[in-house]
Design a binder for these strands. Structure first.
Lengths: 193, 193
DNA sequence: CATATATGCTAATAGTATTAGTTTAATTGT
DNA sequence: ACAATTAAACTAATACTATTAGCATATATG
């Protein structure tokens, strides 16, 4: 038997992320990963519980990475500037790592505590950015949901080629951010049904 | 050999849609469909090119169904009322048929003409609804992208349990619609970068 | 250096799509 | 009504998937 390649969960997740980045989520298969490490597929089970857990780990990395990117982008900024930076960084992440973004935002049932915590961190960051708009309690939550919907929707549709018209997407996104800022600045607590 | 069950593309797609509705997209498998019809898996290839085409057909049904629902909801309405009806019907469709909605909005590369046409129909309907807001040319496209982003983002996140806080989602969505209406009513053509 | 554990392996099961080639049910034409 | 044709089922086979069980050995530990 040859030397052991010193596999570890870290390395496997790294390779899985690269694989997803290159060939999409469906390319993340135990066979492909095993081949990458010069190992047989069952050997991976010594380090990963199963494929579902591996994908959970990937999603955790995605959430943490997204959080880091957004945090870096907002460093030292506040109010409108922070919002713009947040939105631009969000889209940038989605464009640069489409497969990972898609996995990241696809929550399932049993996600475990780590994923929940990562989601919370992201939410806390957004709350911090929205602080300048002086929303409180429930209103802050509603506003955050609107913001997240707009950002996720745009990135998601852009990544899946849902915007077919030959009109500049950067301009559309800038519009979107401006209107989000406007929405937040003139937030109306009263909902008329 | 027993009598032939009189398979057809229509029936297969119908069964596939029911299967997706009940157990999710991953449950749509040729084996499961074959079992449903009391037939062996290869027999299905006499009616469907392959699994990818079957899913394309499902997505086409989804797009057409969504269009129909939205059209029905907007019948006889205009302006703000039409927008509200459109948005509510959009979310309703997404909630009632989560798996189908997810497939519907996940465009791939080679989608063929039928899917493109269905997408166009949907776009045309939205343009009609936005007519009252008096946007023109490029602005109409940007506004439509903002609208679609918000709606798709909300429905998508809601379906994947992306909104964790225990705050009423109906209220959040109503907020979203109101702000979309406001955005459209006070659309600012100039984008300040 | 011996023991024990960690981590690789092979073999096997089960489920997935798909193709090739065959057989027969259903339809069509005379 | 019967023969010929077509449509649609079948069986058999290939090639991927994930996953488990049990075995063997490289590495680490006492």
């Amino acid at each position: 038997m040859a030397k052991r390649p010193g596999l570890t969960l870290e390395k496997i997740v790294d390779a899985a992320l690269q694989l997803a980045q290159r060939d999409g989520e469906t390319a993340v298969t135990l066979g492909a990963l095993a081949k990458h490490f010069g190992v047989k597929p069952p050997s991976l089970y010594n380090h990963v519980k199963n494929l579902a857990e591996l994908k959970r780990e990937m999603r955790l990395r995605g959430l943490l990475g997204l959080h880091q990117r957004l945090q870096d982008a907002c460093m030292g900024l506040a109010g409108r500037d922070a919002l713009f930076a947040l939105c631009q960084a969000y889209r940038k992440f989605g464009r640069e790592q489409p497969a990972l973004y898609q996995m990241t935002l696809a929550a399932t049932e049993m996600d475990g505590d780590a994923l929940y915590q990562a989601g919370r961190k992201l939410l806390t960051l957004i709350f911090a950015v929205l602080q300048a708009y002086q929303l409180e309690d429930e209103e802050l939550i509603h506003a955050t949901r609107c913001l997240r919907s707009a950002l996720h929707g745009f990135v998601s549709l852009e990544n899946s080629r849902g915007f077919a018209m030959p009109t500049d997407l950067d301009v559309s996104y800038t519009h979107l951010i401006q209107h989000l800022d406007s929405m937040l600045a003139h937030w109306q607590p009263k909902v008329k049904t």
